[in-house]
Computed example of a mutant assay.
Amino acid sequence: MAVVGAGPAGLYAAYCAGFRGLSSVIVDALPEPGGQIAALYPEKKIHDVAGHVAVRGRELVEQLVAQAAQFGPRYVLGRTAATLTRDPAGTGWELGLEDGGQVRAGAVVIAAGLGRSVPRTLPCLRPYEGRGVAHHVPRLDAHRDRDVVIVGGGDSAVDWALALAPIARSVTVVHRRAAFRAHEHGVRQMYAAGVQVLTDAQVTACHGVRRLEEVRVTTGEQELRLPAQALVGALGFLTSLGPVADWGLRVENRLLAVDRTMRTNLERVYAVGDICTYEGRVPLISVGLGEAATAANHAAVELRPGSRLAPEHSTDLDAVPVS
């Protein structure tokens, strides 16, 4: 089974496939497993995974990688899946990679998250990209004793503010509206943590010699100058399906339509996680993990007709790695 995407849903799909005795290959354009969690918020705490009061992104990825490792999945990382075509025998699929490589599999699970993502930004931030301006925080400790400005009003902006408040010298959140899109509980925590919050405000300029040193914020008719050695632009992302859009899959609202088995309109091709859509779907990591289990078990039945859909109880079996 081929899995496109090495985020949580993709990693769990590989584990579930292995549990059913299937081998798997995981393809991802990023150089390491974890998907957007590893790339964008490895230090953020995640609160929607069953069995965890809260778990840091990197810890969740480490646990999912270790879980899948019992069955020896093969990783093809830093390489983009560009095409999907029938294999010559017409019984399986070929994933064509951008560098000319190929992966053949009897079934495919697409767990590509939001597809290709480009961060939204502001014109005044672009000259300082990589010189103090970033769109995520891979390591919280890198901002110790810094003055940090966070631009945005969604959950990511509030989460970064809460995570950095105990570490940075100062944290200021700048939001262009009066009301936050973020969860109300998080917003209350942010104010209680002593974060400076500027609403109805906009970052209009950045200054610094070699790196960012100061930002200017306009609020009403007032212009403020804030010291800033780091600015996090939490303004969301522009997303697209990328090459997946050309694979002959049924697309609804820029997502892949699936049925209750997580199958797309193509035989033995499934989609799970944030890239899929169906009526009533809730976009949570925990939901994506359940979808991965559903897809992998249905793929097992497709590849081995006559086998049971429901796997044996995991508490009754010793895991045996696939050779």
Score class of each variant (00 low, 15 high):
R216T: 14
A89W: 07
L77Q: 01
T85V: 15
A201R: 07
G130V: 11
E279T: 14
V133H: 01
A68R: 01
V282P: 00
E223C: 14
N297D: 13
E98D: 13
G7M: 04
A68V: 02
T91H: 13
I150A: 09
N265G: 15
A69T: 11
L97D: 04
V148E: 08
A50P: 00
I46V: 14
E32Y: 09
G194I: 05
D145E: 12
P243N: 13
V109I: 15
A161H: 10
V173K: 03
R308A: 15
R263M: 13
M262L: 04
G208D: 12
Y278A: 07
E279H: 06
E98P: 00
R139P: 00
P73C: 01
A179F: 09
R58W: 10
C124W: 13
R74H: 06
R74A: 10
T277A: 08
S307A: 11
G154K: 08
V25Y: 02
D200W: 07
A89Y: 10
G115W: 03
G100N: 12
R260T: 06
A228T: 03
P31M: 01
H47M: 09
V55D: 11
G10T: 03
V53L: 14
A271V: 07
A193Y: 02
K44Y: 08
R120D: 04
Y270I: 05
G130D: 11
L224E: 02
A310L: 15
A300Q: 08
R268N: 15
A201M: 13
V53S: 12
R268M: 07
L224N: 04
V76W: 00
W160Y: 14
A319W: 13
C16M: 13
R216I: 01
V4C: 09
L64N: 09
M190E: 04
P88G: 04
V151W: 12
S314M: 13
V244I: 15
L162N: 04
E223F: 01
G57Y: 01
P73V: 08
A6D: 00
G280M: 02
V49R: 05
T91E: 14
R268F: 04
N265D: 14
V244R: 08
A66P: 04
P8N: 06
S23F: 00
T83N: 10
L97W: 08
A107P: 06
D141C: 01
R181N: 12
L226P: 03
P73S: 06
M190F: 05
E302H: 15
I26T: 01
G92M: 10
E43D: 12
L40D: 06
A89E: 15
V65M: 08
F180P: 09
G21P: 11
H52I: 01
D274R: 00
T85W: 09
L212R: 06
L140F: 03
A142S: 15
G10N: 03
V272M: 03
E221G: 14
L114W: 00
A66W: 06
G51V: 03
G132W: 06
